[in-house]
């Protein structure tokens, strides 16, 4: 039985697992954006927090993913359901590119532009919303893009703790020593990653300031 036949025969399952995969990735990227961007802004305002925040996010990144899933298992409420656990772990991994890009994006805004804004009497909030964030948006989206591509790959491992997603096929195929089944998970995951990369890359270019 070749790959195409397998996918066609199991199309409902393939679609279900793809949807599950997208749910894991989408929810975690959304959470990472909601946490990471404010944190990135925060460390441009309070430089003392810079090292601990970026350092912390860096350390999380170095923890092997399987181990991180394991560490989070005993957590209350989170540990009760596999998808919650996977989303939390993926969120943690996505934090670093988001915090770092928000920070470098804002810091990279032309110093003269920021000084002009401040000198003209913009409040810190006006400076942030009207000048710094719009000008940093391209760099921030680049961070979302990196995070999304990493998450789509990492989310396949979430199947190891029973969170579902396209990793199901990969682990099942490994157990069955069946390449076709492995590819039925790996190829859709790769396609998702490419789609995310291309669409966010397009968005990044569109939002780059004039």
């Amino acid at each position: 039985m070749n790959l195409l036949q397998f996918v066609i025969q199991n199309r409902t399952e393939v679609l279900e697992l793809t949807a599950e995969h997208l749910w894991l990735v989408g929810a975690s990227i959304l959470l990472a954006v909601l946490i990471g961007i404010p944190l990135g802004i925060l460390i441009t305002r309070w430089p003392v927090l810079n090292k601990p925040v970026l350092g912390g996010a860096n350390i999380i990144q170095t923890i092997p993913s399987l181990a991180l899933f394991g560490f989070l298992l005993p957590a209350p409420w989170i540990g009760a359901r596999a998808d919650r656990l996977a989303i939390l772990a993926l969120t943690l991994y996505a934090l670093l590119p988001l915090i770092r890009n928000t920070y470098t994006g804002i810091k990279g805004v032309d110093r003269a532009v920021v000084e002009a804004g401040r000198g003209m009497g913009m409040t810190d909030r006006q400076l942030l919303w009207q000048v710094e964030l719009p000008l940093a948006l391209g760099v921030i989206i680049a961070g979302v893009r990196v995070a999304a591509v990493i998450s789509i790959g990492l989310a396949t491992i979430a199947a190891a703790i029973g969170a579902g997603g396209l990793g199901e096929y990969i682990f099942r195929g490994l157990a069955m020593v069946n390449n076709q089944v492995i590819l039925a998970g790996a190829i859709p995951a790769a396609v998702l990653a490419i789609l995310a990369d291309v669409s966010l890359g397009w968005l990044e270019k569109r939002l780059r300031p004039h």
């Binding site: 032309d110 003269a112 532009v113 000084e115 804004g117 000198g119 009207q130």
Partner: peptide, 11 residues
């Protein structure tokens, strides 16, 4: 306030 680098908002 006017500065040498002008500092116009590029966007």
């Amino acid at each position: 306030y006017v500065i040498q680098e002008v500092g116009l908002f590029p966007h």
